[in-house]
Design a binder for these strands. Sequence first.
DNA 1: CGGATCGTTGATCAACTTCAACGGTCGTGG
DNA 2: CCACGACCGTTGAAGTTGATCAACGATCCG
Lengths: 194, 194
Amino acid sequence: MYDIIFKHLEEKVTLTQTEKEIIKTFFKPKKLKKKQFLLVEGHVCKYMAFVSKGLLKAYNIDDKGNEHINQFTPEGWWTSDMSSFFRGENAFYSIDAMEDTEVLLITSEDFDKLTVQVPVMDRYFRLLFQNSLITKERRLISSYTHTAEEKYRYILENNPDLIKRIPQNLLASYLGLSPETLSRLKKNVIAAQK
Amino acid sequence: MYDIIFKHLEEKVTLTQTEKEIIKTFFKPKKLKKKQFLLVEGHVCKYMAFVSKGLLKAYNIDDKGNEHINQFTPEGWWTSDMSSFFRGENAFYSIDAMEDTEVLLITSEDFDKLTVQVPVMDRYFRLLFQNSLITKERRLISSYTHTAEEKYRYILENNPDLIKRIPQNLLASYLGLSPETLSRLKKNVIAAQK
DNA sequence: CGGATCGTTGATCAACTTCAACGGTCGTGG
DNA sequence: CCACGACCGTTGAAGTTGATCAACGATCCG
């Protein structure tokens, strides 16, 4: 259970055995059934979650009732509502399980303690956030510069494995498209592949 | 010149006098005239810049020749092309000065050395990137959920000071709108204020 | 003074959304 | 084990939003 998180931490930083022991004490494992919620919009986000197995989605429902998916989180990635977790604001997103899922949870108080007791975790999260920032920035630019079809082609090429696990209407939501539009442009893309 | 950067660092972390001395040695001041480039698209981004005075913009020109502004950077904020700076890729953005500007520059090699010699800088940048990530995420969601007019109203309310320094066509580019659209919807917003 | 830059306005156009209907598949309870 | 409902994807027609193209006026600055 903890193997996968250490594997991920050690891709970015080196940890002593003592540090690993400390880290371990801060995380609590939890299992989520498909469709179960980790966080509900409007509540305060108590946990940051490392997904060790399964798949979560973080999404917001806007005033018109449309769902907008902010992030899919498969094994080996982190999820939470950052502004709620770090600043105690009410969560903007809901997070739920798209498959049966296992997570490791840390509270925000423990997060602070962890970075004090194991300072190299500041470096780990600096690198993690740094990379997320690059990704988020690209998605933002893409949302402005690319057409619907370009966005779809791009994600097909770069996340083929993840796409297979995601229903098409949720993928549409992630890309900021209506399900109908995605369905229609898929035909063009498939036709072009032949 | 260095006062403003220390003021900003110390909003997030505490520094000893020794640490400050070390930090100081890693940054080189530079002045930029209005319209002068800090980074040109396609080059490798050598520096991360802290703006101590003035205003920069980071932008990309797409295949159709349209300019998309990723970020305005006034005094007290950082700018660079992160994927280029941290990974050595070719820069996606150009960065130039919208006003006469003063920056403090650090190279990526020195950035690494700095975080090793002054580990608390990892914490500083963790917190910085964490906040940027929250902001970027909101902008991304906004780009999907809000209409052109809502985006304009939102930025008017939240960045009134910055808006005053920015020509309307560049603001349009930042919001992902054509200059004509922004011009038109401005009328509605002003009419509604009365 | 003259050119460059910026904002405005009108007319047309393209991309994507919305609304509506339908067919297929999956899973659950009778 | 089958039937039914829920969910998902597809297709068509009409509607909307914002982009594009073009022309013009105002201002700034060398």
